Simulated assay, not measured.
Amino acid sequence: MAAWAKRLAGVRGVLLDISGVLYDSGEGGGTPIDGSVEAVARLKRSQLKVRFCTNESQKSRGELVRLLRRLGFDISEDEVTAPAPAACQILKERGLRPHLLIHDGVRPEFDQIDTSNPNCVVMADAGDDFSYRNMNQAFQLLMELERPVLISLGKGRYYKETSGLMLDVGAYMKALEYACGIEAEVVGKPSPEFFRSALQAMGLEAHQAQ
Rank of each mutant, 00 (worst) to 15 (best):
T115Q: 11
G95L: 08
L100K: 05
R97G: 07
I102Q: 04
K92R: 14
T81F: 09
V121P: 00
E79P: 02
P108D: 13
V80R: 09
R97I: 04
V106I: 15
V80I: 12
Q89I: 12
Q89A: 15
P98K: 07
P83R: 12
C88Q: 10
N119R: 02
P108Y: 09
S116I: 04
Y132N: 04
G105F: 06
V106T: 09
L101A: 04
H99R: 12
D104R: 13
A124M: 03
T115M: 08
E79K: 06
D114T: 05
G127Q: 01
R133L: 10
M123P: 01
C120G: 03
D78L: 07
A84E: 04
D111A: 15
D128G: 07
L96E: 10
R133K: 15
K92P: 00
A87V: 15
A124P: 01
T81W: 08
P98Y: 02
V122Q: 00
Q89E: 14
A82Q: 14
R133Q: 14
L100N: 07
M123L: 15
L96A: 09
F130S: 07
S131R: 15
G127S: 01
I90P: 00
G127V: 01
D114E: 08
E109A: 15
D114F: 03
D129E: 13
I90S: 00
L91I: 11
A124W: 01
D111W: 09
P83C: 08
M135C: 04
N117I: 08
F130V: 09
H99G: 04
S116H: 09
P83I: 07
D125G: 13
F110C: 11
G95W: 05
P85E: 14
V106G: 04
Q89P: 00
L100R: 03
D114H: 02
P83F: 06
L101V: 02
N119F: 01
R107T: 08
L100D: 08
F110V: 14
K92T: 12
H103D: 15
N134V: 02
N117M: 11
G95I: 09
N134Y: 00
D104Q: 13
C120T: 05
A126T: 02
A82H: 06
P83D: 05
I113L: 06
M135I: 15
K92Y: 00
T81D: 06
T115W: 01
C120A: 05
I102M: 11
L101G: 03
R94N: 12
K92L: 11
I102E: 03
R133F: 04
T81P: 05
G105V: 14
R94H: 12
P83E: 05
E79D: 11
R94M: 10
V121N: 00
R107G: 00
Q112R: 15
T81H: 11
D104M: 06
A126V: 00
V80L: 10
F130M: 13
D111G: 07
C120Q: 05
